Simulated assay, not measured.
Amino acid sequence: MRIMFEGEIFRWTAREQDWYLVALPADLSEEIREIPRMPRGFGSVRVEVAIGSSRWRTSIFPDASRGVYVLPLKRAVRDAEGIGVEGVVTVDLEILDV
């Protein structure tokens, strides 16, 4: 399953280090929840992501407070793509756990 979406960057500060994430849209998160797959830690789903010319593999995680999956944005990707600590990014995401 491959999806493209635009998402707003937000900061998660629940730990000592700040993490920057993008929330997937609710309808896409619901579709992903419905995909049969083996359970993984923290409910994560393996994905391949492209933002601009950067491509990497990571996992998306369910965010109970938002009711959607969230995608962590690595610092190296933010730096390479000129992504700041806020704004909107276009994400090309492929679900690998199918």
Rank of each mutant, 00 (worst) to 15 (best):
V98A: 07
D63F: 02
W19Y: 13
E81G: 06
V77R: 04
M1I: 04
G84N: 12
P25G: 02
D92A: 09
R66N: 00
Y69A: 05
R57D: 10
T13F: 06
V88R: 13
I60G: 10
R11M: 15
V68F: 09
R66T: 01
V47F: 10
T58E: 00
R46Y: 04
M4H: 09
A23C: 09
T90P: 02
Y69T: 08
R2D: 13
I35E: 03
E30N: 11
Y20G: 00
Y69I: 05
D27G: 02
V88N: 10
L21I: 05
V88S: 02
R78K: 14
R46C: 01
A64T: 10
F61W: 14
E48A: 11
A50E: 15
L71E: 01
P36N: 14
Q17T: 13
R40A: 11
R46P: 14
V98Y: 04
L73T: 08
L73C: 00
L24G: 06
E30W: 04
L96T: 07
A23G: 12
E86W: 12
G41H: 02
T90N: 11
A80M: 10
A64M: 00
A14V: 08
V49W: 07
G52D: 09
I60L: 08
R2N: 14
G67N: 03
V98Q: 05
R2Y: 11
S54K: 12
E34D: 12
Q17M: 10
Y69F: 12
M38C: 01
G87W: 14
A50R: 14
R11L: 15
Y69M: 04
W12F: 15
I35F: 00
R66Y: 01
S29G: 12
K74T: 03
M1Q: 06
S53L: 14
I95V: 15
E81L: 06
D27T: 05
V47E: 13
I32Q: 08
G7V: 06
A80F: 09
R57M: 11
S54Y: 09
G87V: 13
L96G: 00
V77S: 07
D63T: 08
T58N: 00
V68I: 04
F10M: 04
E34Y: 01
R37W: 01
D27P: 03
I9A: 00
Q17E: 13
V85P: 02
E34Q: 15
A64D: 09
E16W: 08
E94A: 05
R75P: 00
L93S: 00
I3P: 00
E48R: 15
D97P: 01
R46L: 04
S44E: 09
V77W: 10
R15F: 11
G87Y: 11
M1H: 05
D27F: 08
A26H: 14
V91P: 01
D18I: 07
L93F: 02
P36V: 13
D63A: 09
L96C: 02
F10E: 07
G7C: 04
M1L: 12
L96K: 02
E94W: 09
P72T: 05
V70T: 07
G84D: 06
V98H: 05
A23F: 06
T90I: 06
I3T: 08
E86Q: 12
A80C: 08
M38W: 06
D79N: 14
A80V: 09
I3G: 01
